[in-house]
Design a protein around this nucleic acid. Structure first.
Length: 418
RNA sequence: GGGGAGGUGCCAGAGUGGUCAAAUGGGGCGGGCUGUAAACCCGUUGGCGUUGCCUACGAUGGUUCAAAUCCAUCCCUCCCCA
């Protein structure tokens, strides 16, 4: 019989786990609480975190009970795993700001209000911990010798590791023990860099409870030629729409490597495996169709069906047939300003297509700027009223695939709101 | 606490008084080729009012006509010893 765990296995979510048979039996039939932690170290979760969320959603659909730990306590310390440099110690204010945002995201995916999913903040127990008691009860269970041999510390042992970060593993192990007691949770999952921390928790539970706990880790997201995925020019692929618009999110998926499509479809969409198999048979140019499915489904999951549709329409309009790119991110410019004349380089900065005027000039010079589809190579060009020819909306393109809409308005937005 | 080595651009890593906005590689960006793919080739990669100016080589002061380079103090990291 196929268990919920098998679903994850088949879709390629499991890179490594402690006891495959054990997990399979555990997931047979009855509800099992399992947990994944999310530390609020940034303003938003990113596609890497989404992998865990996808796993949680899958298991939830299979009738299991996911438990998300919001790492309000652990974020105070900072996980050194997988990092090759010391982390900045985040201020309490930053953490609590991030926490609010990330909690919203977790709710969006896990929908705890429907039941069968729980979100807890580990600050709840970690902030109350008494140091001496902790060291005696938990610290005594850890062997520094053993910790030092762990892969996750290896880089950092060369580059520097403070005690603060070193102790992170104890906190995560403690977390696991806590949720084991509080929720009867005996399974933890995470990114592959979490292996060490997860195993530490399993050991702690064995020592404290004499109980068997389990762990599984997801593969690291790399492109087929070995580079880390989830990076764009603008940094990580954020899940929050106000940092990365649904359109840009959609584009990220559309632009994925051919060779990664099938794997990503399994991981980042809920499409049935048979369907994915069919899509994987596509060859050459047609692979784009599979990418469209991927992009659409993935965008639907994080931004909703409506946003996904708009993103798809916009994308098609810009790169294929169709005219409706009205939903493309746009920048408004005051007509009065245009009257005075604005250098093109400034327009590029305003539309955020270039970070600075120097960069904008460079880009124009190199022939990477297009105004209404026409290459404009004069970096000193001044946009003025006569150039607009009475139109009030323009499509601006930068490079091969970055677009922005420029809308000319009579008055500045501030004046309009007054 | 003692001794040694270091902190350079997005990253890695040269440079050890002027010729340094800083070699080289990676990454990024732009162009070409294409399928909004990969690979490959070419160009580019601090900012600005761009033949010039400003800000930058851990921080702050100092020496000098001139400092990433010399001196002082401080902060941080690594290694060895305790």
């Amino acid at each position: 019989m196929e268990t919920a765990f098998d679903v994850l296995l088949k879709r390629g979510f499991v890179e490594q786990c402690t006891d495959e048979e054990g997990l399979r039996t555990l997931f047979q039939g009855k509800k099992v609480a399992f947990y994944i932690g999310f530390d609020p170290t940034a303003q938003s979760l990113h596609v890497g975190n989404l992998l865990g969320l996808m796993a949680m959603m899958h298991l939830k659909m299979q009738g299991q009970h996911p438990l998300a730990i919001l790492g309000g306590g652990t974020a105070m310390v900072g996980d050194p795993s997988g990092k090759n440099e010391m982390r900045d110690v985040l201020t309490r204010e930053t953490i609590s700001r991030n926490k609010e945002r990330i909690k919203k995201q977790l709710k969006w995916y896990l929908k705890p209000q429907e039941g069968n999913a729980t979100i807890v903040d580990n600050a709840e127990w970690l902030l109350k911990v008494d140091l001496i008691k902790f060291l005696r009860e938990i610290g005594s269970c850890f062997s520094v010798n053993r910790m030092l041999t762990m892969e996750s510390y290896k880089i950092r042992l060369e580059k520097g590791l403070s005690f603060l970060e070193f102790s992170y593993q104890l906190l995560q192990a403690y977390d696991f023990w806590q949720v084991c007691q509080r929720y009867g949770c005996r399974v933890q999952m995470g990114g592959s860099d979490q292996w060490g921390n997860i195993v530490a928790g399993i050991d702690l539970i064995r020592r404290k409870e004499g109980a068997q706990a389990y762990g599984a880790v997801f593969p690291i997201l790399t492109t087929s030629n070995g580079q880390k995925m989830g990076k764009t020019a603008r940094g990580a692929v954020w899940l929050s729409g106000d940092i990365l618009s649904p359109y840009e999110y959609y584009q990220y998926w559309i632009n994925v490597d051919d060779q990664d499509v099938s794997r990503l479809l399994k991981l980042y969409t809920f499409l049935p495996l048979e369907e994915i198999e069919k899509l994987s048979l596509l060859k050459g140019e047609d692979i784009r169709l599979a990418k469209e499915c991927l992009a659409y489904e993935a965008t639907k999951i994080t931004h909703g069906p409506k946003a996904a549709e708009i993103a798809q329409k916009t994308s098609r309009a810009l790169f294929g047939q169709g005219e409706d790119y009205s939903k493309l991110p746009s920048t408004t410019i005051n007509l009065e300003e245009i009257g005075k004349g604005i250098p093109v380089s400034s327009i590029l900065v305003m539309t955020k297509l270039a970070k600075s005027k120097s960069e904008a000039r460079r880009l124009i010079e190199q022939g990477g700027f297009y105004w209404e589809g026409e290459r404009l190579k004069d970096k000193e060009f001044i946009i003025n009223r006569s150039f607009l020819k009475g139109k009030s909306e323009f499509l601006v393109r930068c490079g091969r695939k970055k677009y922005c809409r420029v809308v000319v308005v009579e008055e500045s937005p501030e004046e309009m709101s007054r």
